[in-house]
Amino acid sequence: MSSLLQAKNVTKSFGGGIFSKEEELIAVNDISLNLEVENPKIIAVAGESGSGKTTLARLLLGLINPNKGSVEYLGKNLKDMKGKEKRDFRREVQPIFQDPYGSYNPFYKVDHVLYSPIKNFKLASKGEEARKMVEKALELVGLVPSETLGRLPHQLSGGQRQRVMVARALLLQPRIILADEPVSAVDASLRATILDSVKKLNKDLGISVIYVTHDLTTAYQISDEIMILYKGVLKEAGPVEVVIKNPKHPYTQLLIDSIPQANPKLKWGKLDISETQELLDQPGLGWRDS
């Protein structure tokens, strides 16, 4: 099995230089992750604020470099990529960020975010061809092109804006989509629709997805595998069915126990937080198959 994107024992810390008064903060501590070429899957990276999940996402995108370990795309270290290799990586690994509004320039029509990647990566030679590509991508995420194109970002709903971002990522025919909290700024009823289109991309088009989230319910629904991070450390990882249905680490147990479920009969918060607090720092359990 050859690996598509692989993080090998990456560690990233901030602060704590010789002249710094502040203590060093290890945001991501010795974490590995592997996406295979042959087997496109959805991996959820889950944790709360400060767990290091966004730092890990930035490492995987090559936006920052690790202090230790390496991130490799098709066997090539991201740090050493140049020119065409880097361009290919930038096209084949597409991010989708949390705030769909922040990704737009409010003065440009939404067409701009769709046509500029086509232009920049020279994906189409004619205007007609570009228009067809854009329409196809919009339809894939469940939007009607005639109702979407030609509008300004504020004229679309939050859910539509985020789906346009998914369509933009799709235009580039990526091999990996890295979605960092793609639905946390969106109404609960619209989350389903967006996550459903992400799931389809994986199943129908064979795109691997890294889904960074704090929401274990949606992670359970769409992912194949899950990694639970706490303070930069991997506490537990494995197939979602194993980790969510039978959590072994106290932190995972606390997280699952704290999810308010939409069923008044399943009472929330059975675990006493003051009792579990010390247990949370227990070392991680690593990968669990069962």
Partner: peptide, 13 residues
């Protein structure tokens, strides 16, 4: 439209 931890279903928005 709410995802649950109970069972995996297709999302319905």
């Amino acid at each position: 439209s709410l995802p649950t931890l109970e069972n995996k279903e297709d999302f319905v928005g």
